[in-house]
Each structure stands twice: as structure tokens, then as C-alpha cells.
Amino acid sequence: MPIAQGANAESWQWQLPAGFPPPLVPADNRMTPAKVAVGERLFFDKRLSIDGSYSCASCHDPGRAFTDGLAVAIGVTGERHARNTPTLINAAYNVSFGWLADAPRTLEDQHRVPLHNTNPLELGYPGIDGLAEDEVVESLASYVRTLIRADSPFDRYVYYGDQAAMSMLAREGLELFLSPRTGCSACHRGFTLSGPVRHQLVPDAEPEFHDGIRTPTLRNVAVTAPYMHDGSIATLEAVIEFYDRGGRGQPLDLSAEEHAALIAFLGSLTDAPFARDDNR
């Protein structure tokens, strides 16, 4: 599946949602339609795994906002990963990838991780005839960089003035989310609601998290259960309860209606599903 010669000459036209800037693209991996098309095919290609049973989509399922619905990822040999699978939607804007502070900073570097990680074995990339690993990595990164979406009820209400898009309860939740009282938006901020900040964990957190963890996006959070870096909280309701009890700081003392309002707001951050072609 070689990339057609001359394809790099084509320029990429971003189709971006309101309020979204063009993502940063490394100078040595410019976007082209051909590269993105190859990357999309590779994303669903099980030849990427050692036994032909796994592809990127095995963990990053488009039907689940590119997550897997599991507490922690399971590698190609059935081993459990230590971390929850993050969504790839709007990953192009991440400040880094993975959960840790020293994680890769570009999608290109990140894509080498599942190919070669042995703790656990994620894909066990065996190589694909006729395609250099750099081409695989650059194509996959280019494709993932295109997974940009923001057409949620929140976006329709805020950016398009669609009054019917968000319920009154969800609007109350938005106000609460942005209030100093809950402090949610101190970390989950910016157009992806992820922000450039790290969550500081409790003092007895695992040593590798002492520098904090990357704040994940809250877009599509209602369809990416379970939650937290280790998938330890099963539902959004339980996450809100966790923070209400004190979570990382002071208790919030939320009423039952405020709970419901926050849940409704988080639900309003769900985009229309990506099309899924099961034949891939």
C-alpha cells in the first residue's frame, strides 16, 4: 500500500468547527489527502498486530467515540494495560498524548507506542510489506489528526444560538460547571474542555503520577465510560459524586438537582457519532 508519488503535493483543506483553530502539524509530516486516506485504512487494518486480530480500532472504536468501553485497555495477547483508553476525537489539539507528563508530544511519536509497547503488548507490530514504518506512523497520525468534531448540543446552543439544543437543566449545569464553586473549568477549559493543565492527584497517588496527569477532554464524555485514568469509576454520576465528596479538594455540597444539571450539561457535549464502516 505505498503512498502514491506526488501525493504530498496536494494540500489539506481543514473543515473545522466554529472556534477551532487549525491544529499544529509537524513540518516533516504535512497533511495530504492521500496520507489521510492511507491512515484511515491502516487504522482499521488488523495486519498491524502480531496475530492479525487487532487494529487501532480494536481499542479506539469509532462507535464509542474512539474508546473501548473497558476500564483499562486489553492488548493483543489479552494482557491488561494499566490505563483507560482515551478518546481520539480532537486528539489533534492535545498538549501531549497518553496520561503522563512525560508522554509523547506529537501524534507521530504517540503512534509508535501501541505499535511497539511490550508492557503490555498492545499490537506487536510485525511490519507490513511494502510500507515503511515511518509511512505507517505518518499516515496514522495524519488520519487521527482529522478526527475533529464539535457538533454537540452545547456547540449548537453556544455557537449557533439553537435554543432548543440544550435543555434548561443542561444550561444550569453549564453555569455550574463554569462557576468558581465547582472549579471544573479551572482544569477542563479551552475549546476542547481539556486545557493545557495537569490534574494534581491526591498525595498518595502512584509515583509516576506525582507530576499530575494530563487533563482529558470532556467532549463526548457521556459516551466514553468508564472514567479516570484507570477506569476506576464506572459512571458519570459516580464521577460527579466523587468530586462532590471532595475528589481532589474540598467537598462541593451539590444538591440532587445540581448533580442532575451537571450530568445534563456533560451529556450535551456529545457529538453526532462518526460513521462506522464495518467492512473496513
Binding site: L24, V95, A101, L178, S185, R189, G190, F191, P196, R214
Partner: peptide, 11 residues
């Protein structure tokens, strides 16, 4: 405003 801003890409 907090969810409109374009954050810097650093930790």
C-alpha cells in the same frame, strides 16, 4: 470565555 479560549500547547 473559559471554554472558548485557545490554550497554549504546553504543560
Amino acid at each position: 470565555q473559559a471554554v472558548m479560549e485557545i490554550p497554549r500547547r504546553d504543560w
